[in-house]
Every structure is written in C-alpha cells, then in structure tokens.
Design a protein around this nucleic acid. Structure first.
Lengths: 242, 242
DNA sequence: CGAGCCGTTGAGGGGATTCAAGCTCAGTGG
DNA sequence: CCACTGAGCTTGAATCCCCTCAACGGCTCG
C-alpha cells in the first residue's frame, strides 16, 4: 500500500499524479511550480500520445494550446510558394512547442510527430492565468521573440532552398521590405550575398549581373540599388510555376 | 517659441524628448508606455549611431542590453566548425535585437550593421525593473523562445550550409542528441532527409548508403539506426579541416 | 602610381539533380 | 498460397548547375 492517505489519493486528480511524477518536470515549463501549484493546474493539462507522422497542429490554425514534449521528436514543416516543403526545425524531449498560441496567433509551422510522441497539452488560458499579466511588457517581449523565430525559420525555407537564382530573388524581395521611399534597397557586397544564400561570391556576382541585365535591378553607387518591383514579382512568379 | 513651459523643458531629459518624438515608438518595445512612463525610463536609454560594417555585439559576450532598431539594417552572423561564416538572419526598423541579454545569456550571434544604423540601447536592468517579475513564468517562457530561436538559426548555419555529405553528418550529430540508451537514433525517411537538408531523396539515399559502408551507421528495422559516435566524430572532423 | 579591395567574366571540373530501372518488403485479395 | 501492388530504398547514366581557379578592370587610398 502507498503511504499517501486514501483521501489524498482520491482527492488528487490522476493528472496531478502524472505531473508530480513527470520525468521532464524539472526541465519543463512549469518546473518552477511546487506540488501545491501543480494541484491547481493539473485538471487543465492533458497527456497525449501520438503515432509517427500524425500532425500535432497545422500551420495557420488558431492556436489554443502549447505543448511540452515528454518523449519523442517533432518536426516543423513549411512549404514555400513553389510548393516544395522544407523541414525548418526539430524539437525533442523537454521542448515547448506552439508558443505562438500564447500570443493568440496562428501556428507558424506544421508540427508533425517523427517518432511515437508523448505530449502535454497546456491551454493558453492556463498560462495566461499563471502569468497574470496586467502589465503587457512580457507580452511585448514574447511577440518580439516570436517574430525573430519566424524570421529565422522563413530564412531556411525561403533563402536556403532551391536553385541559386530563386534564392537571390527571394533575398531581393526581403530586402525590398526595408526599401526607402524611392524603392532603393541596400544591396550587400557579393561575398555577403554568398554568406546569406550559401553560394560563392562569383555565383552571386553572376546572378546580380543577370538581374541587372533583366532590368530587375539597377546598381547605384554606395552599395544601394534601384528595384523594379513588378519585374521582381514577375521573375519570382516564373520561378514558382514550372 | 514652444508651448511647453520653460521649466518643463529644462526638467525633461533630452533623451525623453527623443523618445517622445521617436518615429518607431508605437511599434517599439516600450510603445505601451505613456509619457509619464517614458519620463521614468529615459535616463537609462541611449541613442546610438553606427557606421556600416561595425559590430553591435559579438557572439559569446555577456549581454547587458537589448537594442531597438530605429533605422537601418542589422545582420546576424555565425561561423561553423569549418570556419566559414553564414548570415542567418537580418533585422530592420522596429525590431528588437539581443534579447538573449534579458535571460543573462551570452549573445547567440554576431550582430553587425549593414547600413548606417540608429539604435536605442536598453539596459537589461531597466527591462527587469519594468517587468518586475517576482513570478518566474515569463522568464521560463522567454527561455523557451530563445532556445527555439537558437535552434532555428543553427539549422541555417549547420544544416543548410556546405556540401551534401557534410550536411548529412551534421544532421546525424543532431539526431544523436535524441538517441536512446543504446545509441539508437531515429532515422528519417530519405525524402524527409531531403526536406531537411535541401537535397533530393536520391542524394540522401546515396549518402546514407555511403555512411553505412563507412561504418558510421547501421540500419535497423523500423526507421531507426545504430550510430557509431566515434566514427561520426571522425568523419565530421575530416570535413572540417581541409 | 602602385597596392588592395570589390566586382565581373571565362574555362573547366565536380557534385548534385534528373530520369530511369530494379530491388525488398508489407499488405491485399484472388 | 502466391501473384499483385505500391511504398520506400538503392543504384546507374547523363545532364546541368554551381564551384574552383584564373585573369582583368574600376575604384579608392596611402
């Protein structure tokens, strides 16, 4: 027989026992909570088990929960305009996934189980409750972090995928987001383009020249360039069908 | 003459005026603060201007501040074991950079000005003060976010850089982090390896076979494999010198 | 004016893709 | 029981894209 009094056994929700015994608890999100804290939250947390290749969540759907990985691997997938999907990250035991949900944002990737997967599902409202953020600074901070994460992941799926010409076009499109009033963009040195797109500076140079001949770009003195946005869009379009 | 009483003009710190007039204020980290709030913090915030190609901070140094970008572009660089550096992200106007500092962690990348750059330097202690986090949940959350960001950026610099063989070795090393007790790893399908490393499934297959012949891997039934860690380390080492 | 950085362009070779065929193996139904 | 099927993996041959090595021109700066 267990040493725990019988009324305690009955009183405690089965999930509370699971949480108290959880192997990843100390490294997990709520590791800082004590047993009493666990008692308050356990009823809202659900333990899930998923088979390999089943989705945890889909990109774009409204996120209502985050998940802690208790065992197994998860991969994050994105597909670009050309239609080919790219795996941009994996997460494993102890990692927290789907954090976009805390910002009431749609999930940024499709998350799929690699192996058999054991998860704890934590509703957004529960985290809100515990954070009790009257002051909105943490939220602002989290927003920044998520934006950085999103930028890093789309760097993989857009700028590190496919043939060199397409990667350069994607880069130009991204630089265009920071263009000034006259549609002038900052154009990196050729070796910097190489470091961004994983190509040699010669290849970068050839492609930039090609863009110039096609009228997408016009080089200006001082590391800047005039961009013809419609031409860029047309070129990108052409890359994406086929 | 201004409508502001002269004593107010003198009373207000010059930085407070700069903050109040800031063009990116509404989209910036402290956008939620009102004028009174600004009055409390302005003395600690410094406006900086950097020339192109000057570093904002270095990878690995202890972070004491975060920065808001008021104008210009910043690139984040990493160099891998082979010595070639890769740009893994860029940030622009309104973005917050160096958030690792809030967790008292070293900066994860080298941040360098692309263009002329205008920044606001915000000390970590100031953010702490405003967040007043006795409760450590926000910190835990931020930690998770930073881990995800770090994983995404090293995905670029490790798994999306260099020749196919090296990329696969890097992937194996990463999968080895999630190995079970007997050093068995989850081995993705060939097309999944392709989606991770941006190569065709045929190339992935050829390389996996090559690893098998070299004794780095032993294929096991059910999408798993036995890994010879020393052999893997040797193979990676060999890739990295030359 | 020579040195050095940056960019451009060419020639040749190599690594990855493309297209294709054949293999193993699990599941299915005659 | 076994042909049949389809998914996943492997391997070959030809092609092509990109890298490597190289030479050269414009430009700034000491």
């Amino acid at each position: 027989m267990s040493a725990i009094p019988i009324y305690r056994l009955e009183e405690r929700h089965p999930q509370a026992q699971a949480c108290a015994a959880c192997e990843v608890r100390s490294s997990a999100l709520f590791g800082v909570l004590d047993d009493a804290g666990l008692d308050r939250i356990h009823t809202q947390i659900a333990a899930l088990t998923l088979a390999p290749d089943t989705p945890v969540y889909d990109r774009g759907t409204a996120g209502l929960a985050v998940y802690t990985i208790r065992s197994g691997l998860v991969r994050f997938e994105r597909s670009n305009a050309r239609g080919d999907r790219r795996i941009v990250r994996i997460a494993g035991r102890g990692d927290l996934i789907g954090q976009e949900a805390l910002l009431q944002r749609p999930y940024a990737d499709e998350a799929v189980a690699c192996t058999e997967l054991q998860l704890c599902r934590i509703p957004r409202t529960l985290v809100d409750q515990l954070a009790q953020g009257r002051d909105s600074l943490p939220r602002e901070l989290m927003l920044r972090w998520q934006q950085a994460l999103d930028a890093a992941e789309s760097w993989v799926s857009d700028l590190s995928t496919g043939p060199a010409r397409r990667r350069l076009l994607q880069l130009l499109q991204r630089l265009a987001l920071h263009a000034d009033a006259a549609d002038q963009i900052w154009l990196p040195r050729r070796d910097e383009i190489g470091a961004m797109l994983d190509m040699t500076l010669e290849t970068a140079s050839r492609l930039v020249s090609q863009m110039r001949r096609e009228g997408v770009l016009e080089l200006l003195p001082g590391r800047s360039a005039q961009l013809d946005r419609p031409a860029l869009q047309r070129a990108l379009q052409q890359e994406d069908d086929t």
